[in-house]
Design a protein around this nucleic acid. Structure first.
Length: 566
RNA sequence: GGGCCCAUAGUUUAGCCUGGACAGAAUGCGAGCCUCCGGAGCUUGUGACCCGGGUUCGAAUCCCGGUGGGCCCGCCA
């Protein structure tokens, strides 16, 4: 357990002992200003009510009986509140020791436990657009958070590589396809065919039947259909991987729709649902799960003898359970699919699988364009690749302007540009909708990724000038307020990481890093480090090193690089 | 029609889960700061909890009812 966690626990215990009440987590908080201490409790309100005394009086009574916990230098009341002042000269020394290690904020709570996380999941033969970025980077960050807590994480890219759209693609390719065009720029060519087919279909409804027929052939293993499908898929995945490389995102598995559609598992889960009386055969070839009595829309498992999306997801969930006995099976998917995941969970519950509770839809708000909804089918989208290029280009320009003599400009431009873009998304609550605005998402000033990277660069600069001397035994006597505040902020990191992981909310880390950087900048402006006296210099260098380390770890948790120069 | 989500300074937002001290931040606009470790910065001013009820000693936070916006309800995924 890290210092601050331990102090909080000790404070909680001693207050509970003194007042005889169990403290709810919300009864311990941080006072509104540093002069009022570091930890505060409002328990006196609750006790006052029982004892029919005023809260302020009760607070004084509790304080009377209170045994001061370790590392607390002072306790006092402020009206109804009891405030605890941490002895930062002692505690701070431990904080700095902890915060300078590469393992800081790690934990062994996840040791031997698995998390399965399903994210990104683009559709084959369509370009990745800005809407795909959210799932991709939120999922990546959540995976990093769980890893930090010691969990083993299995990353799945459940790609959309099955369904009637592939019938359309094959039909379109048969009609208008051109081998050389396909080679030149596979995804754009394919999406062009797809859009064209959809348009043609509006004029000539028979095309719809034709597409369905091709999909049928694909399902039954027709060699011609299969060959084209495999070709489209391989070309697409190669393109996706270029983008993943640029984003620094990886997967352990690409098992998608087709894998489950063609797998015995999927048929078996339908049979199982029937046997358990969860599903019923409505008409020959149509199997549904009645969910109306549970306040949900009925789910269709089989239609015309063909399994559907939810059937394959059921099979996937069961397979994941059998393979990993997961602690959590997370689906990082847009909020628009909420109904689907509610159905999925309910069906698993009805089938008697205890672990339905651990299948969690990690939902996020929709990304839209200023002119409206993103739609690949209608050709209304902005390609992710273009936005990434734009971000890097803008970073390149700024580097050219501010630091033209920088050595590895290209690498740094990527770190800064992509970092800005990722941070803009990851720093806000994922449930909120975002209207895509390149100027806002690729900004380098204010509360942005580059601001954090810049703070990191400054730390590195100071440490380098100091000869990277790693002094460990530091003198903490006579701390300045700006130093105390920085140390305090550094001490909070482990709890933030835990909270962010458990809630699957990377923005909590992002917000924390902003606070840390603001605190560091204030420290940096007001106190000299290299030119300070010997004792101050030693500990301030340790603080700078700790800040550098926490920024580095924190940015990594968001999937953002922290260069040492920029 | 039924269900889910969102609403905080001019703008973008944190806080809501777990109620507590003057609601944080960024940007914008105004005023300052390079004899000092990198100005992608710092200091400072300005400015916000959608409306109406309720619960509570106490509500941005919980509950109910509105209003506005988004999403879902398919032989798509």
């Amino acid at each position: 357990m890290y210092v601050l966690e331990k102090i909080r626990e000790d404070v909680k215990e001693s207050v509970e002992k003194a007042c005889g009440l169990d403290l709810k987590p919300s009864m311990l908080s941080e006072p509104p200003s540093p002069e009022l201490g570091d930890i505060s409790t409002s328990v006196a309100f609750a006790l006052a009510k029982q004892e029919k005394k005023s809260p302020a009086e009760t607070a004084r009574d509790i304080l009377e009986k209170l045994e001061s916990p370790p590392l607390i230098r002072k306790t006092s009341t402020a009206g109804p509140y009891i405030n605890f002042y941490i002895d930062w000269e002692k505690a701070g020394k431990k904080v700095l020791e902890e915060a300078r290690t590469p393992e800081y904020a790690s934990s062994d709570e996840g040791k031997g436990k698995w998390i399965v996380i399903d994210y990104s999941s683009p559709n084959v033969a369509k370009p990745m657009h800005i809407g795909h970025m959210r799932s991709t980077i939120i999922g990546d960050s959540i995976h990093r958070l769980y890893k930090r807590l010691g969990y083993s994480v299995h990353r799945v890219n459940h790609i959309g590589d099955w369904g009637v759209p592939f019938g359309k693609l094959i039909a379109a390719y048969k009609k208008w396809g051109d081998e050389r065009e396909l080679e030149k720029d596979p995804i754009h060519y394919l999406v062009g065919l797809y859009v064209r087919y959809n348009q043609a279909e509006e004029q000539d409804p028979s095309l719809k039947q034709e597409a369905i027929e091709w999909f049928r052939r694909l399902e039954s293993g027709d060699p011609e259909a299969k060959k084209l499908w495999e070709r489209f898929k391989a070309l697409s995945i190669r393109k996706f991987e270029e983008i993943y490389r640029e984003l620094g995102v990886e997967f352990d598995s690409y098992k998608g729709e087709a894998y489950y559609a063609l797998n015995e598992l999927t048929n078996r889960i339908v049979e199982e649902a029937l046997e358990k009386g969860v599903a019923v055969e409505e008409d020959p070839g149509t199997i549904i799960v009645p969910l109306e009595e549970h306040g949900l829309v009925n789910a269709r498992l089989v239609e015309n003898g063909r399994t559907l999306y939810i059937t394959r997801d059921l099979a996937a969930a069961k397979e994941r359970w059998e393979e990993f006995k997961f602690q959590k099976n997370l689906y990082v998917v847009a909020v628009e699919q909420e109904t689907h995941f509610n159905q999925l969970r309910k069906i698993l519950e009805l089938m008697g699988y205890e672990w339905w509770k651990d299948c969690v839809h990690v939902k996020f708000g929709m990304m839209s364009l200023p002119e409206g909804r993103i739609s690949t089918r209608k050709g209304k989208y902005v390609e992710l690749k273009q936005v990434l290029d734009l971000a890097v280009e803008k970073a390149r320009e700024i580097i050219e302007e501010k630091n033209p003599s920088l050595e590895n400009k290209e690498e740094t431009a990527k770190a800064v540009g992509i970092g800005a873009l990722k941070f803009a998304d990851l720093s806000q609550n994922r449930i909120k909708n975002i209207v895509f605005d390149p100027d806002k998402m690729i900004s380098f000033e204010g509360d942005t990724g580059p601001y954090l990277q810049y703070a990191h660069v400054r730390c590195c600069g100071i440490l380098e000038k100091a000869g990277n001397s790693a002094e460990t035994d530091v003198d903490m006597s006579g701390l300045e307020p700006a130093e105390t505040e920085l140390v305090k902020k550094l001490a909070e990191f482990p709890e933030i990481v835990k909270d962010a992981a458990h809630k699957q909310e990377p923005h909590r880390v992002a917000q924390y890093l902003l606070e840390l950087s603001h605190q560091f900048s204030a420290f940096y402006e007001s106190l000299p480090v290299l030119k300070a006296g010997e004792t101050e210099k030693g500990r301030r260098l340790a603080m700078v090193d700790a800040t550098r380390n926490v920024l580095k770890i924190g940015l990594e948790l968001l999937g953002i690089h922290a260069p040492s120069r920029m």
